[in-house]
């Protein structure tokens, strides 16, 4: 079976004035469906660039990016937008919930964009919020939720539409230890019970310990690929 994410000789070069700054220098990588993978490395190693390209938020300079059977380099803006909507879930470091929407409305945002029927959205989102431990808080706006609770809503939003892969950009960076552990428990449980593929970028040792596969980037190339042995 083809990997859910495959990067082949991927390069990305940014321009800063007259300078060309390489962020990825020919990265090769494959992630299978159902993996729980952490992407780590020092600042400037290319983690965020890699996540942006895999998440169809940015384009590579050369090479190939395959996500859920789609070669992103062949897709236009509209197709990439639909791919993000239908096949990718995002969890951001700063939660990035939409401030004017309640927890329930944030969770159903993508389903509404997909045009799913209201009854289906209600059933799915109430169940998801219950699963992430936010039952009874559905009507609260983000500013009425703690950081940990907001990140739980972000996870519910990321998986509401059954994405092929969830990309998480330093999801625990803004959380205290207890909330970070609880969040990792939740994601690990979703990975095990629903087979959702997770790919994190992280500096957090707790996330690295929980990951079943740890990819380390250095200077835009894969430095190491190992299984820490810890269970998620």
């Amino acid at each position: 079976m083809a990997p859910i994410i495959a990067l082949k000789k991927l390069t990305k070069t940014y321009r800063q004035g007259h300078l060309e700054v390489p962020a990825l220098r020919g990265l090769d990588l494959a992630i299978e469906a159902g993996e729980f993978t952490a992407l780590c490395g020092p600042s400037g190693s290319g983690k965020t660039t890699c996540l942006n390209i895999v998440g169809a938020l940015d384009r590579s300079s050369s090479g190939e990016t395959w996500v859920d059977g789609h070669r992103l380099e062949d897709m236009d803006r509209g197709q990439l937008s639909r791919l993000r909507r239908d096949r990718i879930g995002f969890v951001f470091q700063a939660y990035n919930l939409i401030p004017v929407l309640s927890a329930f409305e944030n969770t159903e945002f993508i389903l509404a964009l997909q045009g799913r029927p209201e009854a289906e959205r209600r059933e799915r989102c109430y169940a998801l919020l219950k699963a992430v431990g936010l039952q009874g808080m559905e009507d609260r706006r983000p500013d009425e939720l703690s950081g940990g609770q907001q990140q739980r809503v972000a996870i519910a939003r990321a998986i509401a539409h059954d994405p092929a892969v969830v990309l998480a950009d330093e999801p625990t960076a803004n959380l205290d230890s207890a909330n970070a552990e609880a969040l990792l428990d939740l994601m690990g449980q979703l990975n095990r019970s629903q087979g959702i593929t997770f790919l994190f970028s992280t500096h957090d040792a707790r996330v690295m310990r929980r990951a079943r596969r740890l990819l380390t980037l250095k200077d835009g190339l894969l430095d190491s690929d190992k299984a820490p042995g810890a269970t998620a």
Binding site: R77, S81, R85, I98, F109
Partner: peptide, 16 residues
């Protein structure tokens, strides 16, 4: 700006 970026990242079309 960030909020709009999030909406676009989640799959909202620029036209919408």
């Amino acid at each position: 700006r960030r909020e709009f970026g999030v909406m676009l990242a989640l799959g909202l079309s620029p036209l919408r």
